[in-house]
């Protein structure tokens, strides 16, 4: 199976919606690549706009956030905008259903962990590297000074989809 994880970026907010992840005006694009510069362009953080040019955001492969990430519109563009920015994992306490399914359908991970575990991840300082151990359903987060491990449970079907490389490949074989 594909490897998941990498350098982490933390977004301390609940209910980040897909209009914030990729605004509707980019839905006229017909290539995924065109979405790349616009990821989270309309995000509001601490009542301010979000600086998408921050180097640690640009380098991120894992996003760590709070609850109900990906609510709102069904646009899979939100997942593609992550994909073309090389983000392959989002970790939070919960996700909106359609977004979560879109992630697994594309063969990448939406991982739900307990609120106290998210708290622990947010408490890490400095640069954080996160690895996802899919054999043992464990998130391993390392900072310079500390390692945090937390477990998650993945719906077995969603795991199969990730293994198959997404829902289209799975369904084409099976149905």
């Amino acid at each position: 199976m594909k490897e998941f994880g990498g350098s982490a970026f933390f977004i301390d907010r609940d209910d980040i919606n897909t209009d914030e992840i990729i605004p509707a005006k980019y839905l006229t694009e017909i290539t995924k690549r065109a979405l790349q510069p616009h990821l989270l362009e309309d995000l509001i953080l601490n009542d301010k706009g979000f600086d998408t040019s921050a180097p640690d955001f640009q380098q991120a492969q894992v996003l760590v956030t709070r609850s109900n990430f990906g609510c709102g519109s069904s646009r899979e563009h939100a997942v593609w905008a992550l994909e073309v920015n090389d983000i392959n994992v989002v970790i939070g306490t919960s996700f909106a259903r359609i977004f979560r399914q879109n992630m697994f359908n594309c063969g990448i991970l939406a991982i739900e962990v307990a609120p106290e575990d998210v708290e622990q991840l947010f408490a890490l300082n400095g640069e954080v590297i996160i690895d996802i151990d899919l054999e043992n359903d464990t998130v391993i987060a390392k900072s310079d000074t500390k390692t945090v491990k937390c477990s998650f449970s993945l719906n077995p079907f969603d795991k199969e989809l990730v293994g198959a490389g997404g829902w289209l490949a799975y369904a084409d074989q099976k149905y």
Binding site: G72, S73, S74, R75, E76, V79, I98, F99, Q101, N102, N105, C106, G166, W167, L168, A171, D172, Y175
Partner: peptide
């Protein structure tokens, strides 16, 4: 489209999905 749930008013199960789900729907 996320507001597909509107059609539930008719006593149907109607759900919004992403593009991959839509592709599989169209195909299979």
């Amino acid at each position: 489209d996320s507001h597909t749930c509107t059609h539930g008013a008719f006593g149907a199960f109607a759900a919004g999905v992403g593009t991959t789900d839509l592709e599989v729907g169209i195909l299979k």
